[in-house]
Each structure stands twice: as structure tokens, then as C-alpha cells.
């Protein structure tokens, strides 16, 4: 069974300060990992490396069996990345955005897929309005539509609940629940400890660029985890 993520000895420094300082990470298919930690712990840097947006200074990453030092391009079609921002063009309509990203990912039968994707996130009535006219929550739902259009195997989510409305949060909850099947998986950075425990199979706690604790969420209550978290990060 090919691991979805296999990262070894990741280090990335910015101007002499090591944001990520020697992290190993494995993710098997069917597993969802959430990453928590205080501000500046290096969570986003780690995630950007997993999304092929940042190269590690040292260390190796394999995503879905492809070493991204040599062939990041092979891994990218399998990834779905969502950050704080929806990562769509505000001056294009919802439809045009999906058309663009569908073409970039080489999605087949795009004309049928776009309305499906839009109705899934409840934006079909606004398909031909520019995203700029959307509310923050709607724009973020647009981000979810972009994220899932090419049916990624591995979700890489950086604080995806930021700015999401109730409807969007439910959508994302369901999406994450579905990623425990079909050989898929997800890595999510979040500051919401409850969601970190409830929506993932495993939690990793980061502090000062290092992983200071990993635990299974099965049988771990949110309250018990909150205590452990305080212990590990203080």
C-alpha cells in the first residue's frame, strides 16, 4: 500500500530562523491527520511543503508515491489545497473559475461537472456572478468547489474553517468524513481543538518547528485532548 504522504527530516528556514525543524510525517490511505499548535509553530510552513508550494531546505517528501523533489508535477493532480483564502479569482464568475481550474487539471466532461460542483456547495443560482459579489462564506464555499472539482486523493487544508459559514462548515465536515474511504486521506491544520479531534483519525501537536506529540483520536475525548495539548505546548 503506497503511503499518501511520506516525509522525512523536513527542515525549512526563513532568514536563518527554522520554521520547520526536522519533522517526519506519514499518512496511510484512509487516514486523516490534523495538525495543531500555537502560532508560529510551523504548521502552515509544513502544510505549504506538503502542497508542493514550498521546497524543503533538507529532507524528502513523497506524495502519493511521487518524490516531489524530482517530480512534483506528477503528484500535483492528486492534491487538493485550500488555504485561508478561497484561492479563486474574485473578478471571474463562479462558473469561469471552475472552468479555468478544470482546464488546468484536465478534468474530463467539464461542462457537466461544473453545475454539479456548484450545486453541491449551493452556489448554482449565482453561477454567473463574479465571486467579488459573494459574501465571505460563499466565497469560501467556492473554494471548496474548486478543491473538489478534480477529485483529489489527498486534501491539504490550511485553516479551512476560517471564514466559512454554517452551511460551508457542514459541507467541509461531510467532505472530510468521506475522505476516510476509497484510498483517500487528508492533512488539516486547524486551531479548533474540538474539530481536530472529531474529524481526524490522528492528531499531531507542533511546537517551535517540531512535532511534540502524536496520538490516535479514537477514544480520546475533546476535553482530555485539550489538557494534553496544554501540557505539550507550555
Amino acid at each position: 500500500m503506497t503511503a499518501l504522504v511520506r516525509a522525512r527530516g523536513l527542515v525549512r528556514a526563513f532568514g536563518g530562523r527554522r520554521a520547520v525543524d526536522g519533522v517526519d510525517l506519514d499518512l496511510l490511505p484512509g487516514r486523516r491527520l490534523s495538525v495543531v499548535g500555537p502560532n508560529g509553530a510551523g504548521k502552515s510552513t509544513l502544510l505549504r511543503m506538503l502542497a508542493t508550494l514550498l521546497r524543503p531546505d533538507t529532507g524528502t517528501i513523497e506524495l502519493v508515491g511521487h518524490d516531489i523533489g524530482a517530480r512534483a508535477q506528477r503528484a500535483r493532480p492528486h492534491l487538493g489545497y485550500l488555504g485561508h483564502d478561497p484561492l479563486v479569482y474574485l473578478d471571474l464568475t463562479a462558473w469561469q473559475n471552475l472552468e479555468l481550474f478544470g482546464d488546468l487539471y484536465g478534468v474530463p466532461a467539464l461542462r457537466e461537472r461544473i453545475p454539479e460542483a456548484l450545486s453541491r456547495v449551493g452556489l448554482l443560482p449565482r453561477a454567473h456572478d463574479p465571486v467579488r459579489t459573494f459574501s465571505r462564506g460563499m466565497a469560501q464555499r467556492m473554494g471548496i468547489a474548486r478543491l473538489t472539482l478534480h477529485e483529489p486523493t489527498l486534501l491539504v487544508l490550511d485553516e479551512p474553517y476560517t471564514g466559512l459559514d454554517a452551511q460551508g462548515a457542514r459541507l467541509l465536515d461531510d467532505l472530510l468524513a468521506g475522505f476516510s474511504t476509497g484510498g483517500r486521506g487528508a492533512v488539516m491544520v486547524t486551531h479548533e481543538l474540538t474539530r481536530a479531534v472529531e474529524l481526524a483519525d490522528e492528531v499531531m501537536v507542533m511546537r517551535a518547528g517540531r512535532s511534540v506529540g502524536r496520538m490516535e483520536t479514537a477514544g480520546l475525548g475533546a476535553a482530555a485532548f485539550a489538557d494534553r495539548y496544554r501540557e505539550l505546548t507550555s
Binding site: A51, T52, R76, L79, Y81, Y89, L104, Y105
Partner: peptide, 18 residues
Amino acid sequence: VAEREQRVLDALLAAPVP
């Protein structure tokens, strides 16, 4: 500029575009 102002650059770079 559009990519920077509308903050989409990451989406283009993460997509499998040579």
C-alpha cells in the same frame, strides 16, 4: 497583479501546470 491582489497565486502554483 490579478493573482497577487485576488490572492490566487497559490492555486495556480499548486495545480499541475508546467
